[in-house]
Amino acid sequence: DAEELIELVERALKEGREIILLGVRITSEEAGKWFIEWIRRFL
């Protein structure tokens, strides 16, 4: 579910982890915020 995915992304970014989803590397909080917004819009 989308909320679970958002929580995972937020937690990983807070822990300083690198996330790779759909071939996109997300390493900064700014990118994470963009990704979370995208999830909310399309899922």
Score class of each variant (00 low, 15 high):
residue 30 E to M: 10
residue 28 S to M: 03
residue 39 I to V: 12
residue 18 E to T: 12
residue 28 S to H: 06
residue 6 I to V: 07
residue 11 R to Q: 12
residue 19 I to N: 02
residue 7 E to K: 14
residue 38 W to S: 02
residue 18 E to Q: 10
residue 5 L to M: 08
residue 23 G to K: 05
residue 14 K to Y: 07
residue 10 E to P: 00
residue 4 E to M: 14
residue 10 E to I: 15
residue 32 G to D: 03
residue 16 G to S: 05
residue 24 V to D: 01
residue 28 S to R: 04
residue 21 L to A: 06
residue 27 T to D: 15
residue 22 L to T: 01
residue 23 G to D: 05
residue 17 R to Y: 09
residue 18 E to A: 08
residue 10 E to R: 10
residue 40 R to M: 13
residue 3 E to A: 14
residue 21 L to R: 00
residue 6 I to T: 03
residue 14 K to V: 06
residue 41 R to Y: 11
residue 32 G to W: 08
residue 13 L to G: 01
residue 34 W to F: 07
residue 17 R to Q: 08
residue 9 V to E: 00
residue 33 K to W: 10
residue 17 R to T: 09
residue 36 I to T: 03
residue 30 E to N: 06
residue 34 W to M: 12
residue 29 E to T: 11
residue 27 T to C: 15
residue 27 T to L: 11
residue 32 G to P: 04
residue 10 E to Y: 14
residue 6 I to C: 10
residue 14 K to H: 08
residue 28 S to V: 04
residue 13 L to V: 12
residue 20 I to N: 04
residue 20 I to H: 05
residue 32 G to L: 10
residue 13 L to Q: 01
residue 11 R to F: 07
residue 15 E to K: 03
residue 7 E to P: 02
residue 6 I to R: 05
residue 31 A to V: 15
residue 3 E to P: 06
residue 13 L to C: 15
residue 16 G to R: 06
residue 35 F to I: 10
residue 17 R to E: 05
residue 27 T to R: 05
residue 4 E to D: 09
residue 32 G to R: 04
residue 41 R to I: 15
residue 9 V to D: 00
residue 15 E to P: 02
residue 9 V to P: 00
residue 17 R to P: 04
residue 28 S to P: 03
residue 43 L to S: 06
residue 30 E to L: 11
residue 15 E to W: 08
residue 22 L to M: 09
residue 34 W to C: 07
residue 15 E to N: 06
residue 36 I to P: 01
residue 26 I to E: 08
residue 35 F to G: 00
residue 22 L to E: 01
residue 40 R to K: 12
residue 12 A to R: 01
residue 2 A to P: 13
residue 38 W to I: 04
residue 8 L to A: 06
residue 16 G to K: 09
residue 16 G to P: 03
residue 39 I to Y: 07
residue 6 I to L: 05
residue 10 E to C: 14
residue 26 I to D: 01
residue 21 L to Y: 03
residue 14 K to Q: 11
residue 25 R to P: 08
residue 41 R to G: 13
residue 1 D to T: 15
residue 29 E to Y: 14
residue 37 E to G: 05
residue 35 F to Q: 01
residue 33 K to Y: 11
residue 12 A to N: 03
residue 37 E to I: 11
residue 14 K to W: 09
residue 31 A to P: 04
residue 24 V to Y: 12
residue 6 I to A: 04
residue 33 K to H: 11
residue 12 A to D: 00
residue 38 W to D: 00
residue 23 G to Q: 08
residue 25 R to Y: 12
residue 19 I to A: 04
residue 13 L to F: 04
residue 2 A to R: 09
residue 32 G to F: 10
residue 31 A to Y: 07
residue 35 F to M: 07
residue 26 I to S: 02
residue 39 I to N: 01
residue 42 F to M: 11
residue 5 L to G: 00
residue 18 E to Y: 08
residue 36 I to N: 02
residue 15 E to H: 08
residue 17 R to L: 09
residue 11 R to Y: 06
residue 40 R to E: 07
residue 37 E to Q: 08
residue 2 A to D: 03
residue 2 A to T: 09
residue 29 E to S: 07
residue 22 L to A: 03
residue 22 L to P: 00
residue 8 L to Y: 07
residue 38 W to E: 02
residue 11 R to K: 13
residue 41 R to K: 14
residue 12 A to P: 03
residue 11 R to G: 06
residue 4 E to V: 14
residue 12 A to W: 09
residue 25 R to W: 11
residue 3 E to D: 13
residue 38 W to A: 05
residue 22 L to W: 15
residue 41 R to P: 03
residue 10 E to D: 05
residue 40 R to P: 03
residue 36 I to R: 03
residue 35 F to P: 00
residue 41 R to M: 15
residue 39 I to C: 08
residue 39 I to E: 01
residue 6 I to Q: 03
residue 22 L to F: 08
residue 40 R to C: 15
residue 42 F to H: 13
residue 36 I to Q: 02
residue 33 K to V: 13
residue 20 I to P: 00
residue 41 R to N: 14
residue 31 A to L: 12
residue 39 I to P: 01
residue 8 L to T: 04
residue 38 W to F: 09
residue 35 F to N: 00
residue 34 W to E: 12
residue 5 L to C: 02
residue 42 F to Q: 10
residue 4 E to S: 12
residue 40 R to I: 11
residue 34 W to G: 06
residue 17 R to W: 11
residue 31 A to E: 15
residue 14 K to P: 02
residue 20 I to M: 07
residue 28 S to A: 05
residue 17 R to D: 02
residue 40 R to H: 08
residue 10 E to K: 13
residue 2 A to I: 15
residue 3 E to C: 15
residue 32 G to I: 11
residue 34 W to I: 11
residue 28 S to E: 04
residue 7 E to Q: 13
residue 13 L to D: 01
residue 4 E to H: 15
residue 18 E to W: 08
residue 34 W to P: 01
residue 28 S to F: 07
residue 5 L to V: 04
residue 25 R to A: 13
residue 27 T to S: 11
